[in-house]
Design a protein around this nucleic acid. Sequence first.
RNA 1: GGGGGAGUGCCCGAGUGGUUAAAGGGGACUGGCUGUAAACCAGUUGGCUCUGCCUACACAGGUUCGAAUCCUGUCUCCCCCA
Length: 399
Amino acid sequence: MSNVTEEPREPGPEAVARAAALTKTAVEALPAGRLAGQLDLGRPLRIKLGIDPTAPDIHLGHTVVLNKLREFQEAGHQVVLIIGDYTARVGDPSGRSDQRPMLDPEAIDANAETFMEQAFKILDREKTEVRYNSEWLKMESDQLFSLMARPTVARLLERDDFQKRMAAEEPISLLELVYPLLQGYDSVAIDADVEIGGTDQKFNLLFGRDMQSSFGKELQSVMTLPILPGIDGVKKMSKSTGNYIGVTDPPEEMFGKVMRVPDANLKEYWQLLLSTDPPAGAGPNEAKRELGRKLVERFHGADAVPGAEEHFNRLFVRHEAPEDVEDFKFGEDPAHLPALVAGAFGVSRSEARRAIGQGGVKLDGKTLPAEPLDYPAGDLDGRVLQLGKRRFRRLVNGA
RNA sequence: GGGGGAGUGCCCGAGUGGUUAAAGGGGACUGGCUGUAAACCAGUUGGCUCUGCCUACACAGGUUCGAAUCCUGUCUCCCCCA
């Protein structure tokens, strides 16, 4: 079909080269060749990224796309960051095998706030247009109907995740079905030239083109980027699965989490987060350390690096207690160990008993035997109680 | 509107009157090995005043010597037909 939005002429070699550079780390850029044509127009493009603030923190997974935006920004294009305060209420079905809980507006607003702050650790604040999609999605129903009039249900159901859910006889809410319309309308509202997202967003991104088309707008091109796996190396990094590294994680934690990433995912991490390969010749341990250093430096500054690494060495290489151990005041004399452990670490007494029985409780680094359970308070005062490998409390006799 | 199916421990999932705190798997935790990687081995995984007691199989009530298992009602969910 002849399309008015297609570029009138072949893009010049210079534009083609720039497009190639920008799509280097992308999985797909569609339609093929379109970006080069857009770049050839000689004007700043409007680059859209939508983020639904369903959790309060940005993690490294988000930074993959944010880094790409930054690249566009540095190339002189206009980045439009859409905070999906409205779509967050609907819930994006992408890659989900179950329904998302609906979030209440207050939580969303709070999340949106921190989200933006954190996004500017990567994006240039001055050059970013931030929009909340409630601005245009809080619409009258006739307007909503006009949105819903175009697409067909069959078209919406094409997507993979829905197919799977239907096959498994799992529910799909109407809201989820409509989600792509809303995201697509974002593109209409801000006149997006390019929309970026993870590969799991492909359907939504492409659907944005359908929406633009039905509103007689120029069609955006879309770019999908690889999904960063979580530190379990298996599932997509996300807050809800707990396999994430948050950009606001303290340096020690950030470094420690990086060290826990499976070797198999190391190369991927380097490529997606630093856009390079791990240093040649470096073993996995060193490559991981270097990754940790670079990330801590990026989000906390170079000053934070030595401390973070030393903390790691101390705890996990030398198996020593951390420098600053939180105090736990206890009052009983003699102190009953299960009660002490339960109180100090917030576990149940049964759990504490089990841990003691399994040799998981240490005092000043020495494993405590299962036998005596009561200790004179004086013998414990000031000493460090340890549960497992990484939980520590300094005992303080508060009686 | 009609018909069918389902709700079990963190998750999935077995269990259809007693030996079931509830198989199995996943996850998680502890110990071993180690590079806090992976793989592997062993153990643990409701609570407590712990050789015993209490609470648990959607919720409420009932039958029974005894129920997650049977009955009644309530709630929630899924599928099909219309």
